[in-house]
């Protein structure tokens, strides 16, 4: 029973509460860094690390944080982990990757997803559940970043993960610039809405038939 609960805690972040496509949170970095799949993966990994660690710490010390000052406490915990991730990435990842992520690594501090999970989950739940929740939401976000960046990279640069796909394709570079990002995300959100609407319509029809 308990195992089942933990599994749902993890998997809900990927589909049911997907942070980008269902909750529409963390839009700024999702658009800014998704010019290539590599960038998307790096950003997703960094945010997942911060999310898991901050969820764990907040959930461990939640009893001693007074309700009135919880937001500043969350911010300090998150900022500490963001600094760690920033220094780690500077030390171990190639410098061109760091340059393309730029100020969006320190900006993880104000990423609404992390604040939202701290406030609505880690502050109320046990450490293990909070870690799993952080990992699930982080993975869900990373996957959605990969989806957006795959579309943008394939159309906008004609490559996937840095590998050229076709010789004859002339890339539409507007897709890797600002306007393309907004339009791709808008259409993707529309697509997921359309699927949800269609699902609820079929459920309604089934219900009518059985009635």
């Amino acid at each position: 029973m308990a195992e089942q609960d933990n599994l749902t805690e993890f998997s809900k972040g990927i589909f049911k509460y997907n942070p980008l496509f269902v909750l529409v949170l963390g839009i700024c970095p999702s658009l800014a860094v998704t010019t290539s799949v590599k960038n998307g993966l790096a950003m997703g990994g960094a945010a997942t690390f911060v999310l898991v660690c901050s969820n764990l710490i907040i959930s461990l010390v939640r009893a001693s944080i007074p309700r009135e000052i919880r937001i500043p406490c969350f911010i300090v915990v998150i900022a500490a982990f963001v600094t760690m991730v920033e220094l780690l990435m500077k030390a171990y990842l190639p410098s061109e990757l760091n340059a393309s992520l730029g100020i969006f690594i320190p900006l993880i501090v104000v990423n609404c997803i992390i604040m939202y999970r701290a406030e609505s989950f880690a502050y109320k739940n046990k450490p293990l559940a909070s870690v799993l929740d952080g990992a699930g939401i982080g993975l869900g976000w990373t996957l959605s970043l990969c989806l957006v960046s795959a579309i943008r990279e394939v159309i906008g640069a004609g490559t996937f993960f840095g590998i050229k796909l076709s010789k004859s394709y002339n890339p539409a570079s507007v897709m890797i610039m600002a306007p393309g990002a907004f339009i791709v995300l808008g259409l993707l959100l529309g697509f997921f809405n359309w699927r949800k609407l269609r699902k609820s319509e079929t459920a309604m029809k089934e219900y009518m038939k059985n009635d």
Binding site: V24, M177, P179, A181, L185, G186, G190, N193, W194, L197
Partner: peptide
Amino acid sequence: IPQPLRGVPIAFICTGLMALAFF
């Protein structure tokens, strides 16, 4: 507006067109 695009999706697409203009 087509039902699935109402709300945030159409706002994103409009922002994209605005960004194109500012480009």
